[in-house]
Amino acid sequence: MIEPNLSTLPARNPEHNPLAILARCKKEKRPAFIAGPMVRYSKLPFRELLRQYKCDIVYSPMILAREFVRNDIARYSDFTTNERDRSLIVQIGCNNVTDLLRMCEMIYPYVDGIGLNCGCPVKEQVREGIGAALMSTPEKVAELVSAVKSKYGDKLCMETKIRIHDDLQETVRFAKIIEKAGVDFITVHGRTKTTRSSQPANFDAIKLIKENVSCPVVANGDCFSLEDAYKIANYTNADGIMAVRGILANPALFAGFSKTPWGAIEKFWDLASSYGLPFRLLQHHMDCMLEGQIDKALHLQLMDLKSTVEMVDWFDENFDLKRNNEPGFGERIEIPSRKNRLEMSHI
């Protein structure tokens, strides 16, 4: 990422401001569809893919402010963007005003909003007072929110992503404190920091928080289909629905597809090749998108591949993978298996 030259950068379109999107979706009588932050996996190629399948707002992976403001290499590796990367919220992991404001100064011309992570349960982050550790210090979170909003006001939309406490009244108090500090909207993950993802999200908790604050609230947890999104929104009255695990498995979730369409895989191949994506990240994305859609033997082969070149050859050997300049690119839904085609030719 280059340091901003504000005289040459175009102003952000106010229509891409997350608050404007939440308001527009409310007029359309639907929740905003939001792709949440995924460690390592919310990179630029995947973000661009999601926007082709009706995602209104997309998050970057969480970026540690401490590393970002001190290290050129961290800045280049953690954050890339372009003119199509809208509406974009960069999620920040931070526990002090100095680093947060320094990172905002570096990044705000390139984003439509920032999000403060108060929910990451990873032990290393919690030990450093980042992520879910902030759920026990609402006054500190309010200080961080207030510092950003005092400096930037409406020029920078600020979200805070929280989890719930065992005592839900404590969560309500937390939400009210950060709302008073000026946060623009709150995303609520309906689990505590110790709740496993295999346990259902607590939508009653999200509904309670929505009833007790005036700012928009986004519901996060257990959204694996468009039907889930509407059910969660109707139950909690949330202004937006965030999908994370669901959208990693099916980037076309908000477009109403029950599984990843083949066209999305072709488009992702094209984007990953154009922008560049480390092999292991590419492999993981393909693993998630194809899980349950190809037989186990093929899936094992996919996970045994050692390089992007091997993976391209493997796809071409087993499937009809169209390139961007070929007719029908990005349009098919079902997987075009070469094995099935060969079998049909012998009937």
Rank of each mutant, 00 (worst) to 15 (best):
N202A: 09
V172L: 09
I209Q: 05
C223Q: 08
S198F: 05
N212G: 06
C223P: 02
K193L: 06
K207G: 04
I177P: 01
R196S: 15
K193C: 06
C215L: 12
F185C: 07
T192C: 10
I177C: 01
K207W: 01
D166L: 09
Q169C: 02
Q199E: 15
K176H: 09
G190C: 14
S197I: 05
V183S: 10
H165G: 00
I206C: 06
T171G: 02
S197F: 13
D222A: 01
I164P: 01
C223E: 00
I162E: 01
T195W: 03
R191G: 06
I177L: 00
A201V: 03
P200I: 00
Q199V: 08
I178T: 12
K180Q: 15
K193T: 02
K176L: 13
K210A: 02
L208P: 03
A175W: 07
A175F: 11
S214V: 12
F224L: 12
N220K: 05
Q169H: 09
V217C: 07
H165S: 09
R173S: 12
G221N: 00
H165R: 12
V188L: 05
Q199H: 12
Q199I: 13
L168P: 00
Q169V: 00
F185D: 02
A201T: 03
L168F: 04
K193N: 10
S214P: 00
C215S: 10
F174K: 13
E179N: 00
E179R: 06
I162W: 06
S225K: 10
V183L: 03
N202D: 15
I162G: 05
V183I: 14
Q169G: 07
I186A: 02
V188C: 10
G190H: 13
H189F: 12
K180C: 02
S198L: 08
K180V: 08
L168D: 11
F224W: 13
E179V: 07
N212V: 02
S198E: 14
A201G: 11
T195S: 15
V217G: 11
F224S: 08
A175I: 00
V183T: 15
P216Q: 05
R173F: 05
R173H: 14
